[in-house]
Design a protein around this nucleic acid. Structure first.
Lengths: 215, 215, 215, 215
DNA sequence: TATGAATGAGTGTTCATTCAT
DNA sequence: TATGAATGAACACTCATTCAT
């Protein structure tokens, strides 16, 4: 009725979702009870249901909200960038920045993929698919620009996602590098590997490699 | 008395653990009930407790057993290898082979790190720590042999583990490459990156990099 | 909001506690199941837990409530009494009256001393200790007033408690005397014994005893 | 077959019963599991059932055995005693001596009266009844000899049993008097009360009491 | 908008007991 | 004489959710 009403409502829901994310991170989706979330948020059990109809939907809203935010920021930041390498760098930075700023949501996104059921699951999977597809697209722009060692985009991109997503199991703020530096390191490994001089390490030189591509 | 007696028992426990791993993979540790495991294994609820005293211990035995197996096979396979690159390749192959052959255990190992409590948790963490330390050791042998782009062993090794462990979320046998090929690809990315010609992609040439290594 | 609300809750809890006391008396604490109490009270199992968080706490509330009531009534009834003999009589009456009016709680108090654990146990033990100390105090007032045969207050008071508490194993309303008469009899035995003429029964005469008191 | 066989058997059963008594004392009948008894006795669960067919029977054997022993010793010790006061003293000593020497059995006897069911319950109740009747008989011999203040034998004897049985809740060897002294004190209280000079305490003199008996 | 009260189904675990060997 | 293996029933307790107010 009053124009402030819907804001109040979504603010309160936002608070609940943030607390739910924390609880889900601490105990896992199945290990967390709605009562835990009620306690953590200071919202009574029944009020909680007034704002969100089920535990599943809490997880759904957290997941979908996070992925949408990541995707939107990515598209906005990608605007104006031309070189696929720069785009890739931006994607990794965008991903890690969100993860390191929202460690609760990050862990939930990464771990609770299969906790969602039915319609919720499909919708989240669809947003994820879009995000993955966007990454593959950038990878293939790169492939068109310069020859790649790894030509299976699926495997390559999933390796990159592995590096990024696994951070949620080990990253410790303060000890580990910030999002920009971490992104640079991951991109460097992904594009050029850890060796400065592969030949010196006994690996085939670049040119032979290219030649070997003939077989 | 009969020589088969102890075998019977451990065989039966082995069967239960295999079923438990499958159920844990399907539903997650917290989402799975001991009754689910009882049903899946065909062992009555109370008999199940005759073989294993708690749900926690089921998870513990799965985790510790898997890590021990991986570590033992690794050490045995490492014997005779000299070059750090070969050692690394073997480590990645050993890891992926176990994971692809035991997808249930793999997923449990990767996801349920924090489901264990108390003594069980500590013991599993210790075996993991050993495994991680072994990998860092190989990485540093490599660093002594040839200059590396990434000098932070922790970040580099965790990036590699990210690639490997993330497979449990996407790997589909039949569609995706087998353990040997996948290992080769991951090692190639890790050591040399996906680019065949970094300079052509606008990245700094090798030699300057090498020069930078003088500081 | 409505003034009746908190009353409703405590009334319902009171009903549950009364039923729990009956069930505990009939089956013992360990022999009784929470389902038995649920059935006996007509309160569903989960509602029961809504009112009281654990079986232990049910017992605790019964025990602490009873002891507090007994103690409060005792102090109120003791006010105005001067002579230790009258005080003792009142204590025994107060004790037996409560027991005979609340036979379920009585039996639980007497039998389930050790069923409680941790904090609950300590708190109940503390109230009991106070009650015992109060009785010893009255006994010692008596000892100051007139020479006693039994000078070990601990043993004497415990003998008296034995008489009183043991009633819970044999008392049958209707057949046995009411609280006032029973109290009189116990006090008479405790103070003067069952013999009217100890000398005639071959026991040492009072006067020699009194003389013996000189040593 | 061999003559020693039955002895072995009953020795082993005796060991089991002693351990069972200890476990029942520590945890209560319902709180104790047959596994607890198996562990405490070092006898495997199935062997335990070979020696005694049920948990109920364990309790039954403990109870019946104890009561029989107490009764037999009592009769043997009573032989030769003439004066009812001496008989009473012997009964109380006999009772306390057994209790203090067998604290486990004592506590079980006192607390687990109602844990037994059916035939077992009846049989134990019968032995108890005999024991009670024997005490009443002695009490009435005393009543014939000398006038008593308390003429209701039931209440008087139950008061005495209360003193004796309640010891199981407070007696601490070392701190509290041994069986003979404790028996003397209890008998003194029971026969003559704690007061040396009831008149001085404001209680009616003996003779008036006797006179009052006329009404 | 908010919440106290309520519940049926389910949780991990233990029980006394039996049976094949 | 002895015991490993097995089980159905029960245990105390928690769950996500609903509903009347």
């Amino acid at each position: 009725m009053s124009p402030a009403a819907p804001d109040r409502r979504s603010q309160r829901l936002g608070h609940i979702l943030a607390c739910a994310a924390r609880v889900f991170r601490e105990k896992g989706y199945d290990g967390a009870s709605v009562r835990d979330i009620s306690r953590a948020s200071g919202v009574s059990l029944s009020s909680l249901y007034y704002y969100c109809e089920s535990k599943q939907k809490l997880l759904y809203l957290i997941a979908v909200g996070s992925f949408r935010t990541i995707l939107e920021r990515l598209e906005s930041r990608l605007r104006g960038l031309e070189h696929p390498v720069e785009k890739l760098r931006m994607l990794v930075f965008n991903h890690l920045e969100y993860f390191l700023l929202h460690p609760d949501e990050m862990k939930v996104l990464v771990r609770e993929e299969e906790a969602l059921r039915g319609r919720y699951r499909k919708e989240v999977a669809e947003v994820k698919r879009q995000y993955f597809a966007r990454t593959v697209q950038i990878f293939e722009e790169l492939a068109h620009l310069t020859p790649l060692r790894e030509t299976d985009a699926r495997v390559a991109v999933l390796a990159l996602f592995g590096m990024m997503n696994w951070t949620c199991t080990w990253y410790r703020p303060g000890r580990d590098p910030g999002p920009q530096e971490l992104a640079d390191r991951f991109v460097a490994i992904f594009l050029q590997g850890v060796l400065r001089d592969p030949a010196a390490a006994g690996l085939q030189p670049e040119l032979e490699e290219v030649g070997a591509g003939d077989r």
